[in-house]
């Protein structure tokens, strides 16, 4: 089915984005380009809904992605006509269109200068600040992006999206402790976000398996990753990603249980005993195979999983079972 235009399109697959942008001519034709403010005309035409403008925004993003500049510009024109040039959100969209149009680095520099000019006039313009950070990152100037982001977070520390971006930036630089810290901030702001718990678990797992980590810190990361994945499945039944992570962590821990058992337990986070880990591992295996079975059969009520993720989980399980049979032999 065509994905809904009411949801932000950034996580869609290329095929879905293409499908969305192909709706552009129809949407542009069928939706009103401007909404009159006079109460008299409201009697005769359909009333204005916020959905209309969300639709335009998302259509704009999809069209930019698929290279359909004409439709994107049309969307932008309508948004500008409704909200005016001075709207911060609209300013960010205008910048986005310019970024997409830029052919070489010189033009990007110009866009960056424009952003800075806007910020000089009004440094509380958060959408533009975010655009500037994204552009810096896209141009490869990661340290600049990090410092700008830290500044933004000093200014508005409750912006979970920005904390998450910071974590991702740190992660891309291999700075695991910082990334973990930023991700924990996100969790403070959104304590029930199961996907963020799973993401933090993944980062912790990466940190544990990174070449630098050894001994106590390795154990600490593993224990915490175990905890995070467990919380993510506690918050969300049948969460494929959470069970996948749990399976990875427990399998790894069981393999190394002999080596780890002796290590000190001074830290606040202690690994649970082998029995518990084994039971968690069994649970994850059982749940994963259930999800894979139902999802492959396309059972009613099990069609929400991403097929790619299911395939990866199947691979993990088959690897695991082949390893087990080797040990038995």
């Amino acid at each position: 089915m065509a994905p809904s235009l009411l949801h932000p399109p950034s996580q869609l697959s290329p095929a879905a984005a293409l499908q969305l942008s192909q709706q552009a001519p129809a949407v542009l034709q069928n939706s009103p380009s401007t909404v009159s403010k006079s109460p008299f005309s409201a009697l005769f035409s359909a009333s204005e809904t916020p959905e209309l403008w969300i639709k335009y925004e998302n259509l704009l993003l999809s069209c930019l992605r698929t290279g359909d500049e004409l439709a994107a510009k049309q969307c932008l024109e309508r948004l500008v006509a409704r909200f005016g040039d001075g709207n911060e959100r609209i300013m960010a969209f205008k910048g986005l269109v310019k970024e997409a149009d830029a052919q070489h680095n010189g033009e990007l520099e110009t866009v960056l200068k424009e952003y800075e000019q806007i910020l000089r006039d009004n440094d509380t313009n958060i959408p533009i600040t975010k655009r500037r950070i994204a552009l810096l990152r896209s141009m490869g100037r990661v340290p600049d992006a990090v410092s700008a982001l830290v500044q933004l977070l000093d200014f508005s520390p409750t912006d979970a999206e920005a904390w998450s971006e910071l974590a991702d930036l740190y992660l891309s630089q291999g700075m695991y402790p910082q990334a973990i810290y930023a991700m924990e901030e996100v969790l403070i702001l959104a304590p029930n976000a199961w996907s963020v718990h799973a993401r933090l678990g993944e980062i912790l797992l990466m940190a544990a398996t990174a070449p630098g980590a050894a001994g106590a810190s390795y154990q600490k990361y593993m224990a915490e990753a175990l905890k995070r994945f467990s919380r993510s499945i506690e918050l969300c039944d049948d969460y494929l990603r959470g069970y996948y992570g749990l399976k990875l962590v427990t399998t790894k821990l069981l393999k190394e249980s002999a080596k780890l058992a002796k290590q000190a337990e001074e830290d606040g986070l202690v690994l649970p005993d082998t029995n518990t880990i084994e039971r968690l591992n069994e649970l994850a295996t059982a749940k994963l195979s259930e999800i894979i079975r139902h999802s492959t059969a396309q059972d009613r009520g099990w069609r929400g999983y991403d097929q790619g993720e299911v395939a990866v989980a199947r691979e993990l399980l088959s690897e695991d079972s082949s390893a087990a049979s080797r040990i038995e032999r």
């Binding site: 993003l61 975010k130 990152r137 996907s195």
Partner: peptide
């Protein structure tokens, strides 16, 4: 409802997506 924390629409890198 928390997927925006991972996709981060405010920081979208449009050139990479293109």
């Amino acid at each position: 409802p928390f997927s925006f924390l991972e996709t981060r629409p405010g920081f979208v890198d449009i050139r990479k997506q293109r």
